[in-house]
Design a protein around this nucleic acid. Structure first.
Lengths: 192, 192
DNA sequence: TAGTGATTTCAGAAATTTCTGAAATCACAG
DNA sequence: CTGTGATTTCAGAAATTTCTGAAATCACTA
């Protein structure tokens, strides 16, 4: 590996974290490299910089593309592919959230739904379904919230973030002054 | 594996998802089993139910304990350890969030901080630092928000969730009526 | 203290994942 | 069509992770 020290630390860290993030070392390293590079990088250069085989780079880039985490660029009169990450870190966050949801949450949601459709054949199964239904409800609440806030423009999202828990204060105040009545969504609970 | 069909589907699914969640199959299966069991389960029974070795159960339970995801129980006049998950799914969610943050976010934050302390020795490093600083700022914003909302009681948290993006509507309304001025936290940006 | 059963440890086996080099494919230019 | 360089594929090698059985440890009782 042949990189400026600062970049190297970052790249190595992303590599090590890879396993915890559910991606592998090389994928993590490549992503880190692209993220801090001032200009798009071609596969050959990635392989050299990280000291890994050309074919490994190819497969890892494919993986990153499946995650929508890299952008493909071209230079005039150059047949090679060059890769970057999006400029905007908020955009990166959105993509990451979307893809993780797709891979880590949605499949579970659909398995839960499927199981909850079935008739329990024993007390054990009845109890298990009850628990799964609690889990299902919670995940649905979370994903509804997510679907909702992901529509927000970055500016508003940032505002919301920086307010943090303080919104509840505002809500209380509001409730006290205007009696809006319950504005909470009715809870769809277990009837999916 | 010898379980009621409904439970078995659930357990198998959690096992398969294991790798995506950054835990392994056995750990996932054990957790799923405990989650839906009507009463605490002992290690021997886990091993039998899942058809895995006793020692594997021991190590996996250790892992789950490191995550604070299981509770140890005892029966009078029985030396064995019995295991469950917390009843409250919200509590489980909080633990999960906390532990994932600890493992997946905090280390990166501290590496970023460390790198950002150093003097760049070239243009490449200067640019890399600029990017890392953007990432650092974003992660800090997210973790601040998280530290903030995790203090909320479950009731309030649920309310907040169900409101979703609608809070911004309220904020706009509020802003229009009362001129509270900027209540956003000053952005600590790159000076860590 | 010796005996019993629960639990943990850990070296190596088994399984899985990651990585490589060689060959195949592809896209384009002459 | 042929040659050239970029890219992908893929079988097997290498590395890593997971799992097991046997032995060790531990906690308690008689």
């Amino acid at each position: 590996m042949n990189l400026p020290p600062l970049v190297q630390s970052f790249v190595l860290h992303f590599g090590e974290m890879g396993s915890r993030w559910g991606i592998n070392r090389t994928v993590g390293q490549i992503y880190a490299l692209l993220f801090v590079s001032p200009a798009p990088v071609c596969a050959e250069e990635i392989a050299e910089s990280l000291g890994i085989s050309r074919s490994n780079v190819s497969m890892s880039l494919r993986e990153l593309q499946a995650w929508n985490l890299v952008i493909l660029k071209h230079k005039p009169d150059d047949r090679r592919d060059f890769f970057t990450t999006p400029e905007d870190v908020w955009q990166i966050l959105r993509t990451l959230a979307e893809e993780r949801k797709k891979r880590e949450v949605d499949p579970t949601l659909s398995v839960l739904r499927e199981i909850l459709m079935q008739r329990p054949a024993s007390d054990a199964e009845r109890h298990a379904q009850q628990r799964m239904s609690e889990m299902h409800t919670l995940i649905e609440q979370l994903t509804h919230w997510y679907e909702d806030v992901k529509q927000l423009e970055t500016e508003r999202l940032a505002t919301l973030l920086s307010l943090g828990a303080k919104v509840t204060k505002l809500l209380e105040a509001k409730d006290r002054v205007v009696s809006l009545g319950r504005s909470r969504r009715p809870n769809p609970a277990n009837k999916s």
